[in-house]
Structure formats: C-alpha cells, structure tokens
Design a protein around this nucleic acid. Sequence first.
DNA 1: CTTATTGCAAACGGTTTGCAGGATA
DNA 2: TATCCTGCAAACCGTTTGCAATAAG
Lengths: 161, 161
Amino acid sequence: MPDSALLADRLATFMRDNGLKQTRQRQVIFDTFLASGDHVSIDELLTLVQQHMDSVGYATVYRTLKLFADAGIAHERRFQDGQMRYEPVEVGEHHDHLICRTCGHIFEFEDDLIEQRQAQVAEAHGLTLVAHRHDIYGECRAPETCEYRARGDGVGALVHG
Amino acid sequence: MPDSALLADRLATFMRDNGLKQTRQRQVIFDTFLASGDHVSIDELLTLVQQHMDSVGYATVYRTLKLFADAGIAHERRFQDGQMRYEPVEVGEHHDHLICRTCGHIFEFEDDLIEQRQAQVAEAHGLTLVAHRHDIYGECRAPETCEYRARGDGVGALVHG
DNA sequence: CTTATTGCAAACGGTTTGCAGGATA
DNA sequence: TATCCTGCAAACCGTTTGCAATAAG
C-alpha cells in the first residue's frame, strides 16, 4: 500500500522546485498509477489511463513515469522480458521479487538476512552497496489451486525458458 | 574458467541431435566467446570475432549466441542497460553479479547463505525455486586505486543514476 | 504572456526475420 | 543434392525525441 498523500506531496515538491506544471494528464496518470497493482508496464498503464482520458498517448505516459522516477515516487524495474515496469515507492520499503513461471504472478519479499549479506559482499570487494536487484523465479507446486492463475492477473508474457 | 572441452562437446551433441551444421563462423564465434571475458555484449563479441573473420555480421552473432543458449553452453543476462550479455556456462557454477557504478566492472560472487534463503522464500510462497538473478550495485570506496578503472575494461555504459 | 506540456509521428537502439546466394553433410 | 547457414537489409518492438499546437502559471 503506497502512502498516496506522501507521494503526492513529494511529487508536488519536486514539481515546484523544478518549475514544472500540474496538468490534468499528470493527475490522471498519478491516480491510475497508485491504484494499479505493482509492476505495471507502460502499456498496461496507458490502457487504464485511457479509460479516464482517452486522448492520452504513449509519449505522455512514458514521460510522466520518468518524471515520477525522477521525483522519487516510482521505481523503474526491468525483468527478463525487457519491458520497463514501474511500482510506487513505499515508505519503509524494501522488497524484492519472486516471479512464478507457471502463472506469471509477481510476489514481493524481503529478507533481512539476505540484505545484510549483500552489504557484506559489496564491502568484501571494496565497494559500498548502493542498490541491488534480486529476482527469484519459481514454479508453482500446486498450479491447480493457484489463485493468481485463476484470476488471470499474472504477467504471462514474463514467462521464459 | 569455463571447461571448453565440455562445452564444445555439449554443443556438438546438441547440433547433431538437431541436424545442425558446423560452420567456420560458429567455430570462430565459439572460440571467441570462450576466450572473451564474461558478460560480453553482442557488439563486443562481434568486434572480437571480426578480428578473425571480418565478413561476419550481427545477425550471425545473434543467432549463434541464441543457439549457444539453447544448447546450454551460454547464459543470457540482461542488466539495467537493457542490452543482452552472455557468459559461458560453468561446471560447478553458480555466481551472481556485483556491479561497480564507479567504473562499471562486473565482479562475480556466490554466497551459500543467500542461496539457501532464496529457496526458503520460494517455498514459503508455494513455489519451487528454479532460477534467480541477484545483482548488487555498489560504489568504489577507493576509486583512485581501482585497478579496473585504470585498466578501462569496465562496462561504462552500464553506469546509471 | 511566457514557459512547460501534450500528442503525433518520426527517429532510435537493440533484436529478429525474410530472402537469395553460399556452404555443409 | 537437399538442407542448413550466412549476410544483407528490412522489419520489429519498446523507448525517446522534434515539433507545432495547447494549456498552465
């Protein structure tokens, strides 16, 4: 659950500081972005946005999500399918991803122990950890009873060999 | 150090089983691929290959590396710059990547504890772990004395915000 | 009224593909 | 000789950009 008030505020501040303008499109994209589940692709987002404002084009969505990333309210993620996906920044975040190759669903997880080890690995090589990305791919052990598969909200295209 | 004999063998078997033909190009690309450091991009590889056979074009390298991946002798990796990079399959492999944002150098690491935890995380969500990808990004704590920076063998284009 | 933003379409970079000519088994 | 492979160029896909029209401050 992203903290929409906080993100709205952070975005407003960023826009003011950079002399950017508030537009109807940006408002709609912001709302849609927060309402959409995590890991939306530009296409998915565009489709959703157009339900509220059908004149919006790809370019605007691309530019707006780049803006969101710059403003620190969205993370850019690129999984194996090469498409960029976005997710709202969380407050006490940090999570990584567990992707099901059976149905395409993307779970989120967080593991302190793994986080610690990462920092140690970086140190051991003379680096200071600044970011990381950790995706786990798995196969459903009980696909028949998989709720995500049934719901069809998975990102099927993500499944690879 | 990839085991070239083993990989050559695995490739030969795959080609025979699928009625594929051995060509001079594939031979050169295979040799160059193994000799090149890890994580080569298609462009880098093409440049190297052309030093031995200047008629080779992009398409052949692309197709050949796809073939290598299918044959199980190369891994496809996509880091944040969106380009596909390849590395020879190792025998007792498994390693992950630590990327320096200062110089672009890609280190490899392996951590059993992290490996174990990952499997547990997958299990906890009802999945069986089949693959993962773990990239750590760091900044050099002593860039002046960084040997990789001096050598300039880093992948500069990889460095991002 | 000035400056930023939009929507379109064209450009772009990396990857894939159709095809005619050339090489392999 | 039948089939696969190559090299080229064109197609492709996701993303970025130039531009004239439009909207925000």
